[in-house]
Nucleic acid binder design. Structure first.
Length: 274
DNA sequence: GTGACCACCTGGCCGC
DNA sequence: TGCGGCCAGGTGGTCA
């Protein structure tokens, strides 16, 4: 499932393929993907726009057009493919951007969880969804004081809160397990009971894990691959996630899998005892 | 403001 | 082999 490193990989892959292309037509085959505005308005406004740049904010892909930003969240299984005009549609391709050069960018999503917004450039930072996002992992303002302020009222387990995109963006279920393992923090720990040392470890290990994952092209796990069939390699580096019943790489204890607020969570009871 | 729960979705897996 | 049920999970909405 796409988390920050996977979105970063998609962004870089697409930048090398579609920058400068002008949108001639758009087909929305499943309107539920278009969150804002209506799909009719979406189509009307985006035709004639050129893709000038592609950025990322948290798990959102940001296609910079002439007058708008097209925001795209891949959720669980969203991906982009380049096709030639006239290629037969796959049943899971839901939005198709036709370019003036005869190629097409198609959004494919087997579970239809992904969402798109088309937002005017001058209000992009003050509009949903970007105005509700927290700090990037590499933001200078992400420090112990920031986390302490955000976490002080949170009684939920840290495993749940570390996924909160309004605090730190980009962390999903896979990397959350890895970050807590490296930080030696039990995922059940009440967030407001974490010590400053724990918060510092979360910050450092978030950067470490995500940087390493980006270098390796993200994680290819279960049904997810990146754009254009690009496979990430970080799953080879996962220490606990998806390793239920295997030995902890640090202490040789058995890695267990539990459910915390509905999320599958892998951890080592011996190492993560804080 | 916070936390619990549910809905959105469909492919894969498991048990019968 | 076929069927039904469960699971996976990011996010937003509703309700207490």
């Amino acid at each position: 499932m796409p988390e920050l490193p996977e979105v970063e990989t998609v962004k870089e892959t697409l930048k090398s393929k579609i920058l400068g292309k002008k949108i001639k037509d758009v087909k929305v085959l499943y309107a539920g993907i278009i969150e804002y505005p209506t799909s009719d308005e979406f189509i009307k406004e985006i035709i004639g726009e050129t893709i000038n740049d592609i950025k990322r904010r948290g798990k959102w892909l940001m296609f910079e057009l002439d007058h708008y930003y097209l925001l795209s969240h891949l959720r669980m299984e969203g991906k982009y493919n380049i096709r030639k005009n006239g290629d037969i549609y796959d049943k899971h391709e839901h939005v198709c951007f036709e370019f003036t050069d005869g190629t097409e960018l198609r959004y494919r999503d087997t579970r239809k969880f992904g969402r798109m917004h088309l937002i005017k450039k001058d209000i992009i930072n003050s509009s949903k969804p970007l105005n509700e996002l927290g700090l990037e992992p590499w933001d200078d303002e992400l420090n112990v004081s920031y986390l302490r302020a955000k976490y002080k009222t949170k009684r939920l387990p840290i495993k749940t809160v570390i996924l909160d995109q309004s605090i730190i963006v980009g962390i999903g279920n896979i990397y959350a397990d890895e970050i807590l393992f490296l930080s030696k923090i039990n995922p059940y720990t009440k967030t407001n009971e974490l010590k400053d040392e724990d918060l510092n470890n979360i910050i450092l290990n978030t950067k470490t894990v995500l940087e390493e994952a980006i270098k390796m092209g993200g994680t290819t796990i279960r049904t997810y691959t990146s754009s254009e069939g690009v496979h990430g390699k970080f799953q080879q580096k996962l220490l606990v996630h998806n390793h239920e019943g295997e030995l902890c790489p640090i202490c040789n204890n058995i890695i267990v899998k539990v459910k915390i607020n509905g999320r599958g969570t892998y951890y080592c009871e011996k190492c993560q005892n804080r």
